[in-house]
């Protein structure tokens, strides 16, 4: 992964920086210049809520390179309490115990390793709320 490509997304991956349409409330993550719902161009910066419920998930058993040491792993879509829906891995949970509708919260973790000498890539993952 090219360092600039990684670096550009840090505000989202490390700090969940998003924006909210001033007209209709749509949340852009990553932040958008135009609202896809109402066409509005005025936004206010927000930080995503860090809790939400699991909408759907799968368990990846044939992984892409960069994820082989984590396989099998769960990945799912969580609808956060502010309505934004994002995809990330589900961790610190037994794969057979995962259920849609359960509450998860976001933690900052290592996501993938880019080869032996490449960068370590970090970001958000979902951990069950106990």
């Amino acid at each position: 992964m090219f360092p600039a490509r990684y670096w550009r997304e840090i505000p989202q991956r490390y700090r969940l920086e998003a924006n909210k349409c001033k007209k209709c409330g749509y949340i852009g993550f990553p932040p958008r210049l135009v609202c896809p719902k109402c066409g509005g161009r005025e936004f206010e910066p927000i930080k995503l809520k860090s809790e939400g419920k699991l909408l759907t998930y799968t368990i990846i058993r044939v992984p892409p390179s960069g994820f082989k040491d984590q396989t099998p792993y769960a990945i799912g879509i969580v609808e956060l309490d502010d309505g934004a829906k994002i995809m990330a891995q589900l961790v610190d949970v037994n794969l057979e115990d995962i259920k849609t509708g359960d509450k998860y919260h976001i933690e900052f973790r290592k996501v993938q390793s880019d080869g032996h000498s490449g960068i370590l890539a970090y970001g958000y993952k979902f951990v069950p709320v106990r």
């Binding site: 892409p64 960069g66 792993y73």
Partner: peptide, 24 residues
């Protein structure tokens, strides 16, 4: 690339998530 593939999803994985939602 930045908000799906970055997290380790594959194409079978994306359709698997749609399948689970449809089944439920």
């Amino acid at each position: 690339q930045e908000y799906e593939v970055y997290h380790g999803v594959t194409f079978p994985g994306l359709y698997a998530m749609m399948a689970r939602a449809h089944m439920e």
